[in-house]
């Protein structure tokens, strides 16, 4: 009986040691995972370009332009946005903001710069009273030549879920 108990204790100790060693081996990875937080996932909507989505009006509003590598909205462009926001508040459809940026420095820089630009426009519209959930954004850097100019353009859209 004593032998069985000793055997059990030794087995348990070995198991614990093994677990500890295992954790030691994986400690680096485990620490990383602990430090990582779940990031949000984009709310899935039907593809903006696929079936069920309809681009009702493009070019209805003047695009917001930026100079150089800037993403701050100038006073002149803010006036344009106030007009756009007034129309949007009286209209049920969603608006898709697409942003571009020149890729002369680097393709990756252009992607991130265009995202900042589109977020600047989105925040301005929200500040003017447009409901956040009605504003969709997509930034393309210099990847899609047709939308990759130095600014943010608008399209009134109806997605399949409306």
């Amino acid at each position: 009986m004593k032998f069985k108990r000793l055997h059990f204790l030794l087995s348990a100790a070995a198991l614990l040691t093994g677990c500890s060693l295992f954790q030691g081996d994986m400690g680096d990875e485990a620490d990383d995972t602990v430090e990582m937080l779940e990031h949000p996932r984009r709310r899935e909507i039907p593809s903006l370009f696929g079936p069920g989505s309809e681009r009702l009006r493009g070019g209805h509003f003047p695009p917001v332009k930026f100079s150089g590598n800037g993403w701050q909205i100038s006073k002149e462009e803010t006036v344009k946005l106030k007009t756009t926001a007034r129309w949007l508040k009286g209209n049920p459809h969603r608006v898709l903001l697409t942003a571009g940026a020149s890729g002369s420095e680097s393709a990756e820089y252009a992607r991130q710069l265009s995202d900042l630009r589109v977020q600047s426009v989105r925040q301005t519209l929200i500040g003017e009273g447009v409901a956040a959930e009605r504003i969709l954004t997509a930034s393309y850097g210099a990847d899609i030549p047709s939308v990759s100019f130095e600014g943010v353009s608008f399209a009134i859209i109806r997605t399949g879920e409306e």
């Binding site: 990875e29 990031h39 992607r111 991130q112 995202d115 977020q119 930034s139």
Partner: peptide, 29 residues
Amino acid sequence: VSAPGTNSGAAFSRDGQRIVLSMTHEGDP
């Protein structure tokens, strides 16, 4: 990775276990 905003510039670590990238879901890249 499909967080809101732009997710791009991914690079594998040498062991292939991790990826470093740019994300904008917290406001800016």
